[in-house]
Design a protein around this nucleic acid. Structure first.
Length: 862
DNA sequence: GCAAGGTC
């Protein structure tokens, strides 16, 4: 029997498709990554009986990145990222071990059918799957074809069965166009991001973002927000005048008439109109017209519309909304929430879905009425061929969903009910009046059939005063006629909903990525979310966009994305060569990049207005080893030290506090040491600002403090203060924290293990001697006579922290489970057999004595 | 540490 592997883009689709093709007759099991399932059933394929295995990936299997050494921001010139830096495909989510999973399931299969989404990304994933699976599948017999592509436009029985009966081939060109997009986005985004981040960080001390990112989607998104800001800033209010007339009808009530000219911007002309209408004492009805008008029921719900409404009506941001929707989906309350489609599939069970809502306390009445009177055919929407519109899938109560979950579900349910309701119908009455030579109008609306507005009351036609019934030629006395002086108002900041509309219109991002881009510009502190979910650009956001406009407006215009996509489309249509398009587009952006770098002074002029130069920021903290002047500590993230005399910036560890460390100096470079400490875990270590940025020894890396320094003799180094291998992590060493007394502790220099010991000891020192059993450094401890916990009123003791019986009660291993042989298990520390030669210590050089001491010394003198 | 695109 032949075996057929079939792969969909996500677990939910694999299940739906398998259920359709097996007619519900399948067995399912979880795959080895826990995320994907495998559904198996029997059938026939290519005229022979076959065993089918339907499974899925989780989106892209692979992601594109530069090879390792090009990810070093300090050593790589961003310009190299345009051509020189090689890229490689890495597993998109290593935790899912997707390649291995596919290979386990694909081994021994004869055929593969690709059921990935029918768009370019899906086509690209086809080849990612093939790259993983073809090497382990059975080799084709003769000239037999083994790779098939299913093309479907909806998840319905007919569509899926049709696809299975008309299998095609994956489209290499479409996949290549995605490869090209990935490479362009990566090279362009990273080059600009790294350049401007490093450039501005090295220049200004109070930028309020630690990452000044640039991207072909996020930057135009920011551009929209700043464009609105500029409109507000440049807005000049204008005074205008409106002629307002009121007429009496039915004794007490008066009717306000709207001027047909709406408004005029010249006071004298306005005054003239007032004068000529004032002469008339009456208003004459010129015409009365009645029209039946319709407010259309909504189209079926897709993702962007849901995001818009969630933002503007529910006050929920797009990222948050998608998280909630994702949860409602996985719990089975709503259908798949990422779709562009606004048209229900032909065989969609509208009535079934409606019946599920018949007992909801809020809308049972409406639903029951619809069910008994017959539902209305939904409007014809757009079928993007991806997923059905977003609908409720089962009944839910406010109590079980809670908070935002319920609010979103309620909206989705009401929207769904509205789509099968009738339109709202109303009668619009328009009365035209003349007062002297001027014309005025009065409009009244009367609902004749509320239709869908019953379930979406916020769309209902507001109740208005009823108009008088009158006819042509009727005369009404004027009770008042006057000029109103008003001013034009500036527009307000862009709402999130408006931004989503703009992004959709210009093709910036996709339904799934729009929330990510909006979130990005918030996180980078380019915009803030104000009340009413309006997006107000920050100084940083404004300066960046104005700078791009000044240097190269294309960098921020929304057209940049569509121009590139036009080129990419040529690849997918087979009309252009992948390499040529890629090379050509990269060349253009490389030129743009160099021009941007050369013109960066133009951006600086704008930056200087809002931000302070590094030299003017921060407080003097420690002395520079080169000029011996004080360097300034810039606390704003990313915190760093800046020597204005040498014009050098030294980065520091983040998320903690930095203090001067007793004016002690690094023996290698004379820089004053600083002490970093983390608040919560109470871990701290000294570091040399210079060594932290320029590792002094070959075996050290950037970002190491003294607790990782292999200097053989410096009193602050790992060599002098290291005690023993970390009890938890693989490579860490527990290092004495010399500043920690009287609550002494040692902390791992790699992970966050902290060991408290010898509380109230007067002195704790690391001895040059080592433990004979476990090879750890011995520790000398001095206690005050009065407080000594040592037996026999001793005040001093020297021993191994791990093995010495005298010490065992004085060592308190904090944080997480300890795996050191001595501290295994909860009951009694000495139960384990093997103390001493712990496995973690065997075969490793003692951290106290670098094996290659001469090498370290040699490096020291270089 | 960076992009945008899938999805968990």
């Amino acid at each position: 029997m032949r075996a057929v592997l079939m792969v969909a883009e996500k677990p939910s689709l694999a299940q739906s498709i398998a259920r359709i093709l097996s007619r519900g007759n399948m067995t399912s099991r979880k795959g080895l990554n826990g995320a994907c399932s495998v559904h198996e059933y029997g059938g026939s394929f290519a005229g022979q009986s076959a065993h089918f295995k339907m499974t899925s990936v989780c989106g892209h299997v692979m992601t594109l990145d530069f090879i390792g050494k090009y990810n070093n921001w300090d050593k790589v010139d961003p310009a190299e990222l345009f051509s020189k830096a090689p890229t490689e495909k890495k597993e998109a989510n290593p935790k899912l071990t997707m390649v291995k999973f596919l290979q386990v399931e694909g081994r021994g299969c004869d055929y593969i059918v690709l059921w990935l989404d029918c768009d370019k990304e899906g086509e690209n994933i086809c080849f990612e799957v093939l790259d993983a699976v073809l090497p382990v599948m059975n080799k084709p017999r003769g000239s037999e074809r083994t790779v098939y592509r299913a093309k479907f436009s909806s998840i319905t029985d007919t569509d899926i069965c049709n696809a299975m009966n008309n299998l095609g081939e994956p489209n290499r060109n479409e996949a290549l166009s995605v490869d090209a997009r990935q490479e362009l986005d990566l090279r362009i985004g990273c080059a600009f991001t790294r350049f401007q981040t490093k450039y501005f960080q090295g220049k200004y001390g109070n930028l309020d973002s630690s990452l000044i990112s640039f991207g072909p989607c996020q930057t135009p998104t920011l551009g929209f927000c700043v464009e609105r800001h500029d409109k507000i800033q440049s807005f000049k209010p204008e005074t205008y005048w409106v002629l307002q007339a009121k007429v009496n009808h039915e004794k007490e009530s008066s009717l306000t008439l709207e001027w047909d000219r709406v408004r005029v911007f010249d006071r004298e002309i306005a005054q003239m109109f007032l004068n000529i209408t004032k002469i008339a004492k009456e208003a004459k009805v010129e015409s009365v017209s009645k029209k039946e008008k319709v407010k259309q029921r909504p189209l079926a719900l897709n993702t962007v519309e849901m995001l818009r409404v969630a933002s503007s009506a529910l006050g929920m941001g797009p990222q948050h909304t998608m998280q909630i929707a994702e949860r409602l989906y996985t719990q089975g309350y709503i259908s798949y929430p990422r779709t562009e489609t606004t048209h229900y599939p032909e065989n969609f069970d509208l009535k079934g879905a409606l019946r599920q809502q018949a007992n909801n306390p809020y809308w049972a009445e409406t639903v029951k009425a619809l069910l008994s009177e017959g539902i209305n055919r939904p409007r014809k929407g757009h079928d993007a061929g991806d997923h059905p519109p977003i609908t409720p899938m089962r009944a839910a109560s406010e109590a079980e969903l809670g908070g935002d979950g319920w609010r979103l579900y309620e909206y989705i349910a009401r929207h769904f009910i509205a789509t099968v309701s009738t339109d709202c119908k109303y009668l619009q009455t328009t009365i035209s009046f003349s007062i002297g030579p001027e014309h005025f109008t009065c409009i009244g609306k009367m609902v004749t059939s509320p239709g869908f507005t019953e379930i979406m009351p916020w769309h209902s036609i507001p109740l208005e005063e009823s108009l008088p019934s009158c006819e042509r030629g009727d005369i009404y006395p004027i009770s008042e006629i006057k000029l109103l002086e008003k001013q034009t108002n500036p527009p307000d900041y862009l709402t999130e909903a408006e931004l989503i509309t703009l992004m959709e219109k210009h093709g910036i991002g996709t339904d799934a990525s729009i929330p990510v881009h909006i979130n990005n510009i918030c996180q980078r502190n380019y915009v803030t979310v104000e009340s009413g979910r309006r997006l107000k650009p920050t100084n940083l956001g404004i300066v960046l966009v104005h700078g791009y406009y000044k240097i190269d407006a294309e960098l921020v215009l929304p057209t940049i994305r569509s121009a590139v996509e036009k080129q990419l489309n040529l690849i997918s249509l087979g009309k252009a060569n992948y390499h040529q398009v890629l090379e050509h587009t990269l060349d253009i952006f490389k030129r743009k990049f160099h021009y941007f770098v050369d013109s960066i002074a133009g951006m600086d002029e704008l930056m200087e207005v809002s931000f302070s130069p590094l030299a003017d920021t921060g407080k003097p903290l420690s002395r520079c080893g080169k000029c011996h002047r004080f360097m300034k500590y810039i606390q704003a993230k990313p915190s760093r030290l800046h020597c204005s005399h040498c014009d050098e910036t030294y980065s520091l560890p983040q998320n903690g506090t930095i203090k001067l460390y007793k004016e002690l100096r690094c023996p290698l470079d004379d820089f004053e040491l600083v002490l970093w400490s983390s608040g919560s875990r109470g871990k701290s270590y000294p570091l040399c600002p210079y060594c932290y940025n320029h590792p002094p020894f070959r075996d050290m890396k950037k970002g190491m403090g003294c607790n990782e320094c292999t200097h053989p003799t410096c009193q602050h180094s790992l060599s002098m203060l290291g005690i023993g291998q970390c009890v938890e992590c693989e490579n860490g060493v527990l290092v004495l924290d010399p500043t920690s007394g009287p609550k002494w502790k040692m902390a791992c220099n790699k992970c966050n293990v902290v060991v408290h010991f010898f509380e109230n000891a007067h002195k704790v020192r690391v001895s040059p001697e080592t433990c004979e059993v476990c090879d750890a450094a011995l520790v000398d401890v001095d206690f005050n006579k009065a407080k000594s916990p040592l037996p026999g009123d001793e005040t001093q003791h020297s021993g191994c922290v791990f093995c010495d019986p005298v010490f065992q009660d004085l060592v308190e291993l904090k944080h997480a489970a300890m795996r050191h042989p001595m501290h295994r298990g909860g009951q009694g520390k000495r139960q384990g057999r093997g103390r001493g030669k712990g496995r973690r210590l065997g075969g490793r050089p003692n951290p106290k004595k670098p094996k290659d001491k001469m090498a370290a010394l040699a490096a020291y003198f270089v």
